[in-house]
Amino acid sequence: MNIYIKHDHRRLFEIVLKEQFELLNVDYKLSGMGEINIADKTTKEQFKSLTSALSRYGIEIVDSQKSTLVQKIKDAIIEMVWDDGKLPASKISYYLSKKLNHSYGYLSNLFSEITYTSIENYIILQKIERTKKMILEDEMTLTEISYHLNYSSVAHLSSQFKKTTGITPSTFMRVVNKRKLNLANTI
C-alpha cells in the first residue's frame, strides 16, 4: 500500500531543534529562520554534543561571519521562493540588499566566493526545486505553477527547467514515477 504525505519543512525543523536542545539542556531562542540565540552559560561540551546531535539531521552550525551572512542570503531566498506571496514584484537585488542591509554587489561577491554558485543561479535552482515539488504534488498544472512563481510564461518556466536539469518537466515526472514503480517491485 502506498500512502502519500505532505510536510512542512519549517515545522519539522523547529521540532527537531526543540527536541535536541531540550535533550541537552541548552536554553535557546529562535530569532529567525536559521538564527538561534543560545544561553551564554552553555558549556563547550554541550556545544560539541549539540553540533554532533544536529549534524545527524543535516543541520550544521555555521560559525564564521561570512558563512553566517551567506546562510542569511540563502534563507532569504528560500523564504522568498517557498513562502507564497513573498516573491517580490520589484528587483530581487533590491529586495535582498534591503533585507540584509548590505549592497547587492557585496552580497553577490561573497555568495559566489563561498558557495561556488551565483545568487541568480541559486534563485533559479530553488524555483526549479519548488516546481519539482509542485509537479509531484500534482495539484497544479505547469501553467499555474509558472504563474505562481512569477514566470512571464509557461514556456519560460519549461525552458528554465530544461536548462537547469537537462530534462523536460514531463520526462522528470515520468522518471520519478518509474523509480517509484521500480522500488515497489524490489520490496
Binding site: G58, T117, E129, F172, V175
Partner: peptide
C-alpha cells in the same frame, strides 16, 4: 550543482542533471 544539494538540504531524490 551537486554541491548545492549537499549544502542546502535540497531533495536528492529528485536531483537530475543531464
Amino acid at each position: 550543482k551537486d554541491w548545492q544539494y549537499h549544502t542546502s538540504g535540497l531533495n536528492k531524490e529528485t536531483f537530475f542533471l543531464s
